[in-house]
Design a binder for these strands. Structure first.
Lengths: 144, 144
DNA sequence: GCTAATTCGGACCTTAGTGTCCTATTAAGA
DNA sequence: TCTTAATAGGACACTAAGGTCCGAATTAGC
């Protein structure tokens, strides 16, 4: 549901968000801090830059910064460049049920996928820095 | 979250469950009915048999049957042989937060993964045949 | 201007998931 | 007994994700 690359991206973005001063952080420094594969993280950060999540400055003392305030950056925007969380299969049965006649697993499963998507869209990077929002709770229709 | 192979397995098992008489259904027939890659589905059915989800009989007029009543067969048991739905990463941040000090995304995300797992465990193949159970509903803590 | 630090971007490798193909084995029925 | 239909199971191919490596371009500071 979330790829390894997406996890790397999230970790890196959170580290950048924690950085109070405006100086950039190099890919190598991020990788060392988080103990991630440096070369691959560098590639991942490049993709984040192309997607506008981070900005970069080249040369000595260069590195990466968040491209926008952490409050305005949803987890979905960080993860989407790696095309993970957008529901690719509409339903459990492989997406061959049309909306008019959904398969019997459709409602159950779309509840999960939609709530996952919503959490990623409604949670900002800043939310994860100092978390005090109430978390989502699940209940079944049979419980009520 | 659920692999292509798992989807194939679910579709095949549902087809077997719909079969009222006790005669087995061949892999080729299942593949034709569902329009799935026949050779790969055959391999998938073999894995289901090893895992005890279906039973097989060889030779002419052989094929596959459900190994147990559809009521007693959870979706999780069908999907687990393909190691998909068991939460491999405990949290969004790559699982490096220990339970005592969960990362800030932990509660949010585990809500999703646990509800997904619970749906797969609580829903039987029979439930999907004639669906009349109330579906899960989601609400946020902020709504109440 | 030179050097060091850094991003940029492409080439390449490895592995797992998916898919194909072929041969051996088994069993039903003529 | 022979033929035919089926599972069993291994070998192999393809693709994408994850990961490594290297050279080129860029920039700060000396």
């Amino acid at each position: 549901m979330v790829s390894q690359t997406g996890i790397y991206a999230l970790q890196a973005v959170l580290l950048l968000a924690r950085r109070s001063d405006g100086s950039p952080l190099s890919a190598a420094a991020i990788a060392q801090e988080l103990d991630l594969p440096a070369d691959y993280l560098a590639k991942t950060l490049r993709r984040l830059r192309v997607d506008g999540v981070v900005s970069s400055s080249r040369g000595a003392h260069g590195g990466y910064r968040l491209a926008c305030p952490a409050e305005d950056l949803s987890l979905a925007r960080v993860l989407d460049p790696f095309e993970e969380t957008r529901p690719r299969r509409v339903c459990l049965m492989g997406g061959r049920c049309d909306p008019a006649h959904p398969c019997s697993a459709h409602d159950r499963w779309s509840t999960v996928t939609h709530s996952a998507r919503r959490i990623l869209e409604d949670t900002s990077v800043a939310d994860l820095l100092h978390d005090d929002r109430p978390t989502l709770t699940l209940r079944t229709g049979t419980d009520s």
